[in-house]
Design a protein around this nucleic acid. Structure first.
Length: 286
DNA sequence: AAGAGGCCCTGATAGC
DNA sequence: TGCTATCAGGGCCTCT
């Protein structure tokens, strides 16, 4: 599910709805995520105020008032929902108005005064991780390359990185050590706009190719963010609604259909590259 | 060192 | 209907 744009959508909502709020209660329904949620998790978060919410690559980072952090990763199938608390009229009780979604696999529930945040992850590839201080936080991201939006992701970096590299360009777009935030969907979409064949070896890419990769990586991710991300199977924003960018896919899941470039008579092909499905035009992507 | 491959896990869908 | 096989948006680890 979640590549950089989807994670950014979630991050923006968290920023609007839980920033500066205090955690009143944490309930773990299931500790089994990629890393087991430790027993001390609840206690560590209790009474903490969420000072700041940031994102790096596909990771959401909650910063608390005592300068500790919590890194959240959504894995393949993780979703975060924010559910508003309602007061029942004429009683002292309250209830949560759940969006219309099955929630078999809720793992984490974090309660704020007026809202609860629910983390749900059927495949359990995601995680919550408590981080003691800024230094430990930085260590966590040291091995990751720049996001496409960073100034460091420039022609010199990309062109030099590709020198002598035999691996194909599709794999590099998915390689978080090279560039972080792009996933399997956007890799195909980016290469289509670049008119570069996903199997092309990185060392054979020209400077012009590299410039296109930089330009379209930014463009595709920005547009996807603007459209609220992409929903293929289960991505939902924190209110339970789908993204819209999947309607604008040029190649992803368009196997057998015509290339959308008016000047091209090609057909979109699907090919498995390193165990990941890859979509491309057989004619205009050279 | 770079690159290929396996593995973690559940659910939806396709095919028989 | 009900079984089995395949595939899914990520990332880490190991082996060569």
């Amino acid at each position: 599910m979640p590549e950089l744009p989807e994670v950014e959508i979630v991050k923006q909502s968290l920023d609007r709805k839980i920033k500066q709020k205090k955690i009143q209660k944490v309930i773990i329904k299931n500790r089994n995520l990629r890393f087991k949620i430790p027993m001390k998790f609840e206690e560590s978060l209790n009474n903490r105020s969420v000072k700041k919410i940031t994102r790096f690559s596909k990771y959401i980072i909650l910063e608390f008032s005592n300068s500790t952090f919590c890194i959240i990763h959504l894995g393949m199938s993780g979703t975060i929902h924010l559910i508003r608390k309602h007061k029942k009229i004429n009683t002292n009780t309250s209830f949560y108005n759940s969006p219309n979604l099955p929630f078999k696999h809720n793992h984490v529930e974090i309660y704020f005064r007026d809202i609860k945040m629910v983390y749900n992850d059927p495949r359990r590839f995601g995680f919550f991780k408590l981080i003691k201080n800024k230094k430990n936080l930085n260590e966590h991201f040291n091995h990751l390359g720049p996001e496409p939006f960073f100034r460091l992701f420039n022609i010199i970096y990309v062109y030099n990185y590709f020198k002598n590299k035999k691996k194909n360009i599709k794999n590099f777009l998915l390689d978080q050590k090279f560039v972080s935030g792009i996933g399997n969907i956007y890799a195909s979409e980016i290469l289509y706009l670049c008119k570069i064949n996903p199997l092309k070896k990185a060392k054979n890419l020209s400077k012009e190719d590299c410039k296109k990769i930089i330009y379209f990586s930014k463009l595709v991710l920005k547009k996807a963010i603007k459209d609220g991300g992409s929903t293929i199977r289960n991505f939902r924003n924190v209110s339970g609604h789908s993204g819209l960018f999947q309607k604008k896919f040029n190649v992803y899941q368009r196997e057998g259909l015509n290339c959308l470039d008016n000047n091209c008579t090609g057909i979109i092909k699907k090919k498995t590259i390193s165990k990941r499905s890859t979509f491309f035009c057989n004619k205009c992507q050279k």
